[in-house]
C-alpha cells in the first residue's frame, strides 16, 4: 500500500518533471523568432515533451534501483528524470554542451547514462530488444536486477515489440514492457491503427502476465509496476503493462495538432497533475502552501539546470571525430 510519505514524493517527482518540460518548452520556443526555425536557437532540433505522462515514469521508477535498466523512447525526459539521471548533465546534453551526458553528441532523443543504466532511442520500438539483452546479462550474472523497456502504443504495432516479447517470455527474463498509450502515434489515432482495444491481450498471447492500467493514476501505476518488478526480481519472468496516459502537448514542439480537434480539450481535462494535487490537498496530505512550495522548489532546480547548461562550453568542432570507435 502507498503511504502518505510516498504520495508526497510522487507529487514532488511529477511536479519536477512538469516543471522541466514546461521550462524546456518555453526556452525552446523563446529564440525561434521571428521566423520559427526548427534548427535555430539554443535548443535546436526536434523536441518531444512528455507533459501528461509523468505518472507512468514516477509510478514505474519508484520501484527501481540504480542498477535496474531502462530503455526509453524518443520522448524520454520524464523517464530519465524519474530514474535519477543527473539533471544538469541531461540539460547540458539537450543544449548541446560539452558538459552534457554525451558531450553534445546525442541530444534529447539519445540520452545515455550508464551509471543509471538509462538509455533511449529515436527509433520506435527498437529499445525493446535491447532491454531483453540487458535482462539476459542480469540473469546470467545472477543479480536480481530488472530491465524495463518503455515505448508508446504505436510501437506495439512494430515487429521489434513482438520479437522482444516472445524472446523474453521464452527465456523467462526479468523484463517489464511498458506501453505508454497516449492515444496518438504522432497524428494517427490508436483506434485507426489497430483493432485491439486492450493491448495487454498481446502480452497474454505471448504467455506473460499482462494488464491494461486505466486512469493515468500514479498510485495505480505504481502498484501495477510493483507487482511486475517484484515478479521479475523473483525470477517469475516478464510482464506487459499497457498504461493509458495522455499527451497534453504536440507530438513535437511546433506540432499544431489540428488533427486532434475537440479531443485536445478533453485531454487537457485529463491532466494528472492538478488532479493529484487536489486529491492530496483534499485528503489533508498536502496544503495549498506545501504544494506550492514543492512546485517552487522544482522550478528552482530546473532553472538552475538550465543555467548550468547555458553557461557550459560548447564542444570543440574537432570533437566530432572522437568516439566513433572505443
Amino acid at each position: 500500500m502507498v503511504d502518505n510519505e510516498q504520495r508526497i514524493e510522487f507529487f514532488r517527482q511529477m511536479a519536477r518533471i512538469r516543471a522541466y518540460e514546461a521550462a524546456l518548452q518555453a526556452n525552446y520556443h523563446a529564440d525561434k523568432t521571428p521566423q520559427w526555425d526548427i534548427g535555430a536557437g539554443l535548443i535546436p532540433g526536434e523536441m518531444h515533451l512528455a507533459a501528461g505522462q509523468e505518472p507512468v515514469a514516477v509510478g514505474l521508477c519508484a520501484n527501481l534501483v540504480k542498477d535496474d535498466a531502462i530503455t526509453g523512447p524518443h520522448r524520454p525526459h520524464h523517464l530519465a528524470l524519474a530514474k535519477g539521471v543527473d539533471i544538469n548533465k541531461m540539460t547540458a546534453e539537450i543544449y548541446g554542451r560539452d558538459t552534457g551526458l554525451s558531450h553534445g553528441k546525442g541530444g534529447h532523443m539519445h540520452l545515455f547514462d550508464p551509471e543509471q543504466h538509462f538509455s533511449c532511442s529515436g527509433i520506435i520500438g527498437q529499445g525493446m530488444p535491447v532491454a531483453v539483452g540487458q535482462a539476459m546479462a542480469f540473469a546470467r550474472r545472477g543479480t536480481d536486477n530488472v530491465a524495463v523497456a518503455v515505448a508508446g502504443e504505436g510501437a506495439a504495432n512494430q515487429g521489434a515489440f513482438h520479437e522482444a516479447l516472445n524472446l523474453a517470455a521464452m527465456w523467462k527474463l526479468p523484463v517489464i514492457f511498458i506501453i505508454e498509450d497516449n492515444d496518438w502515434a504522432i497524428s494517427v489515432a490508436r483506434d485507426t491503427a489497430t483493432p485491439i482495444k486492450d493491448g495487454s491481450l498481446r502480452g497474454t498471447a505471448y504467455g506473460m502476465p499482462s494488464q491494461r492500467v486505466e486512469g493515468n493514476d500514479v498510485e495505480m501505476i505504481y502498484e501495477a509496476c510493483k507487482t511486475a518488478v517484484d515478479r521479475a526480481r523473483a525470477g517469475g519472468g516478464p510482464t506487459l503493462l499497457e498504461i493509458h496516459t495522455v499527451r497534453l502537448w504536440g507530438h513535437f514542439e511546433g506540432d499544431a495538432q489540428a488533427y486532434r480537434g475537440e479531443e485536445l480539450n478533453e485531454a487537457a481535462e485529463r491532466d494528472p497533475l492538478p488532479a493529484y494535487e487536489q486529491r492530496l490537498i483534499s485528503a489533508g496530505i498536502l496544503t495549498e502552501e506545501s504544494a506550492a512550495a514543492i512546485k517552487a522548489e522544482a522550478e528552482a532546480e530546473v532553472n538552475a539546470a538550465i543555467e548550468f547548461a547555458k553557461s557550459s562550453p560548447e564542444p570543440k568542432p574537432s570533437d566530432a571525430y572522437l568516439h566513433v570507435f572505443a
Binding site: 535491447v130 539483452g133 546479462a137 546470467r140 520479437e163 522482444a164
Partner: peptide, 28 residues
C-alpha cells in the same frame, strides 16, 4: 544451452538482445 543459445527467427530481437547484453558488459 546456457551459453550456446538457439534463437527463434527473430533477428531484430536477438541482435538487439546482443546489444543489450554487450552494453551491460557481456561479450556476445
Amino acid at each position: 544451452s546456457a551459453r550456446i543459445v538457439d534463437t527463434p527467427i527473430s533477428e531484430t530481437g536477438f541482435i538487439g538482445a546482443g546489444i543489450g547484453a554487450a552494453v551491460e558488459g557481456m561479450r556476445p
